[in-house]
Design a protein around this nucleic acid. Structure first.
Length: 428
RNA sequence: GGAGAGAUGGCUGAGUGGUCGAUAGCGGCGGUCUUGAAAACCGUUGUCCCAAAAGGACCGGGGGUUCGAAUCCCUCUCUCUCCGCCA
């Protein structure tokens, strides 16, 4: 959620910022400004009436005590009550439209981002070189199937397309990756948190998925609306709500969390020929990193998260590039995002394996997540940041493709061997 | 699943219709005393709306009764206890 003061004082700047993000919210913003004025007028009117009511209410016991006739006062109060009710109703209409619109606005992009979409993304760092093969490399679907690591057919049998089954060494390799990630993060001082995989509406609202993207997640049916839950699309949704409606002390910041969860996404209509196999499923495993920081610390935290993700990719032996996303390619809630992409031979290009973002105050405002500044005693919104560290569903195919040998066997990355009983080679 | 009891400020816990935004204790902060600390004593200490003052709102959420609600009624959510069931 954006700060209404910013919108009020600088509507053109906000409009321009969102246009850089390729979202034209000018109409919404104009309406928000109208509603903001109406809202404040209504508050003023209602509060004056309430003040009057409070004043008279205080006098009534004394009038009664002194035996005076109170019926005229009561009649007057009834009239007051009616107009208060009327005004309150008007105010609540205004506020509900106001709030809905305000919640629908995306975050403002950082000023140093290039405007526009994907085409303006900018690779800012490279590490290593794309792997070269002395033979015709196979794609990960064939490799995984031949080696018995992934069972695509039975995945589809169980749950339809977009699902797969990890089997045997494939399952163990997946688990080894998760363990490697988790151990690395713990060593870096992050707290491991295991969260529910089904979340209530408020969590989605805070993270910024709702109200706009309610259709992107899987909802669980329930007869009671208040009990309605969805399967989390990323652990970020849970971790960002961990401190919702809390005021933290300045000393406990930054909060550094990691969580492993499966992630559930509908991915409606997004299949493409080059996204076979495990690149875009409805369920995948991910270790997510989230930080809550003071505003002045979030840039450094962002760099820390990017570096952490890069280090994991590096340790697995991948060539990668880090891409600074243009404003329009950052997701709605985020002020800035860097993607880390690795080269997957069969996809003949780079695929995102981690996405690190700074939401700045956007999520904190939605979820009312604050900290008390020690010096001033004032409450301020925290900044929230998140990053994948990492999603396995693209790492495993990448490992298999990049580490394949001519005979179809796959070399296990060194950092994973200790999780696989020292296994060095996966072969048939 | 059945029966019952609760939800009050950072915590504990009073308050059952009229200066109650709320008694008290603990904790926190500031001070006195002390070489320093502890103890003791004194003071202070919630959040939000509004540019601010004035004012208003907030005693789990929502609704109602009343001139007036933390207090009465309805409803939802959550917590606890007992029984049953399951792991």
């Amino acid at each position: 959620m954006l700060d209404i003061k910013l919108i009020r004082e600088n509507p053109d700047k906000v409009k321009a910022g969102l246009i850089a993000k390729e979202v034209d919210c000018s109409k919404e913003i104009d309406r928000i400004l109208e509603l903001d004025t109406l809202r404040r007028e209504a508050i003023y009117a209602t509060e004056n009436l309430k003040a009057e009511q409070n004043k008279v209410t205080k006098m009534i016991p004394e009038l009664k005590k002194s035996g005076q006739d109170t019926s005229a006062v009561f009649a007057e109060m009834n009239k007051l009550k009616d107009s208060i009710k009327e005004n309150d109703a008007k105010l609540s209409d205004i506020e509900s439209e106001y709030r809905t619109l305000l919640l629908s606005l995306p975050n403002m992009p950082d000023e140093d981002l290039k405007p526009g979409g994907k085409e303006n993304n900018e690779a800012i760092r490279f590490f290593g070189e794309p792997h070269k093969f002395g033979f015709e490399p196979k794609n990960h679907v064939d490799l995984c199937t031949n080696l018995g690591l992934i069972d695509y057919v039975r995945g589809a049998k169980l749950s339809g397309s977009g699902f797969w089954v990890y089997r045997g060494l494939g399952a163990r390799l997946e688990w080894a990756l998760l363990n490697f990630f988790i151990d690395t993060h713990i060593a870096d001082g992050y707290e491991l948190v295991l969260v529910p995989h089904m979340l209530g509406y408020e969590a989605g609202l805070t993270a910024g998925q709702f109200p706009k993207f309610e259709e992107d997640v899987y909802w669980l049916q329930s007869s009671e609306d208040s009990q309605r839950r969805f399967m989390l699309p990323t652990a970020e949704t849970a971790l960002v709500s961990l401190h919702r409606d809390e005021i933290m002390s300045e000393a406990e910041l930054p909060k550094k969390y990691i969580s492993y969860t499966p992630c559930f996404r509908r991915e409606a209509g997004s299949y493409r020929a080059d996204e076979r196999g495990m690149v875009r499923g409805h369920q995948f495993n991910k270790v997510e990193m989230v930080q809550y920081t003071r505003p002045e610390d979030s840039d450094a935290a962002f760099e820390e998260l990017v570096t952490k993700a890069e280090t994991l990719v590096k340790k697995l032996g991948f060539h990668f590039r880090t891409v600074k996303l243009a404003a329009g390619d950052c997701s709605a809630s985020m002020a800035r995002t860097y993607d880390i992409e690795i080269h997957i031979p069969s996809m003949n290009g780079y695929k995102e394996v981690s996405s690190v973002s700074n939401a700045r105050e956007y999520q904190a405002r939605r979820g009312n997540i604050r900290f008390k500044r020690a010096e001033s005693g004032k409450n301020e919104f925290v900044h929230t940041l998140n990053g994948s560290g990492l999603a396995t569903s693209r790492i495993l195919p990448a490992i298999v493709e990049q580490n394949q040998r001519a005979d179809g066997s796959v070399v296990v990355p060194e950092v994973l061997r200790k999780y696989l009983g020292g296994l060095e080679l996966i072969e048939k």
